[in-house]
């Protein structure tokens, strides 16, 4: 307690000793500030200082009340101008982060796989379609079927409200066991329009790389082995140019997915739609 009191005394002593110096420099010839705040001045500038003040007044010269008020008004005006600009920028940023139109991750790119009807399928086949794409494997115990069911439900919900037809896409990360026939049987479980892709190990690996998907299948896995595959469990929404729009995890519901898809479709349409993007319109397939 005493230590505190003595230290505050020291501080006030210091303040007393220190203040005259800045007060004189404030009243210096270059600033009009001291003059508009005479209250401060009166505090420290005693009789001995009066001569100095007269000198200062002569040196200040161009100072007028008019100049001071112009300075003040401009300052206040600028302050409010910048505040309103800042608010505008922040509002814009909020809007952008809400709809995620800026700073797209590099997800998506070239691949060559085989669809469930044994036809080649590449990234070009995505053009014109809204695509929901999931990477998994047909021997997956529970997460893949749950996610693919959710995808199927979301597709149905969007079908009911929009003319665009989403392409639900399943890509196998288990090339050793997931043959074309196996994939064909599997995707039929989830949605009549679902397309299932598979390929050899290198093609699958390349596709996964394009889509930033991790998977753990060993390259020498055999079709007769009984194993599980660790893999990323997001599914992505891609726009009709095959570009990434959003990713959905395990905790997203089918309603939330459908909502985000519809929102993206409306935004796309407002910006000119497929015609503006130069890709064919895919409806009612």
């Amino acid at each position: 307690m005493t230590a505190l009191r003595s230290s505050t005394r020291a501080l006030s002593l210091l303040a007393k000793r220190a203040t005259p110096i800045p007060s004189r420099s404030l009243a210096g010839p270059s600033t009009g500030l001291a003059r508009s705040q005479p209250v401060f001045q009166r505090g420290y500038a005693g009789g001995a200082d009066d001569g100095g003040r007269a000198r200062d007044k002569a040196a200040v010269g161009p100072f007028t009340w008019k100049a001071a008020s112009v300075f003040l008004v401009t300052g206040v005006g600028l302050y409010f101008y910048f505040e309103s600009e800042k608010a505008k920028v922040q509002a814009r940023r909020r809007e952008e982060s809400a709809t995620k139109s800026i700073g797209k991750p590099q997800i998506g790119g070239p691949f060559l796989l085989t669809n469930q009807d044994n036809q080649p399928f590449t990234e070009k086949d995505l053009l014109g379609n809204w695509t929901l794409i999931y990477f998994g494997f047909t021997h997956c115990p529970d997460i893949c079927p749950e996610e693919l069911d959710k995808m199927g439900e979301a597709v149905e919900k969007v079908d009911g409200e929009r003319k665009e037809r989403i392409l639900p896409l399943f890509v196998s990360v288990d090339p050793a066991r997931d043959t074309v026939g196996q994939v064909k049987k599997y995707v039929a479980d989830f949605h009549p329009r679902m397309v299932g892709l598979t390929g050899d190990f290198d093609s699958v690996k390349r596709a996964c790389k394009s889509y930033r998907v991790y998977f753990s299948t060993p390259p020498d896995a055999k079709a007769t082995d009984d194993y599980l595959v660790d893999h990323s469990i997001f599914f992505y929404l891609m726009d009709p140019l095959g570009q990434f729009v959003d990713a959905f995890g395990k905790n997203t519901t089918s309603d939330e997915v459908a909502g985000k898809v519809k929102q993206a479709m409306e935004k796309w349409e407002a910006a000119g739609g497929n015609a503006m993007a130069g890709v064919p319109l895919q409806v009612g397939r």
Binding site: I143, R177, T179, P218, D226, L228
Partner: peptide, 27 residues
């Protein structure tokens, strides 16, 4: 759930060897 530390390759030979395993159906 699946992402971390789950068994990635718990290999074991199924009873009738050299038959490719067929994935279970929805049922």
């Amino acid at each position: 759930m699946f992402g971390f530390g789950s068994s990635s390759a718990s290999s074991s030979t199924p009873p009738p060897a050299s038959e490719p395993t067929v994935a279970p159906t929805r049922e």
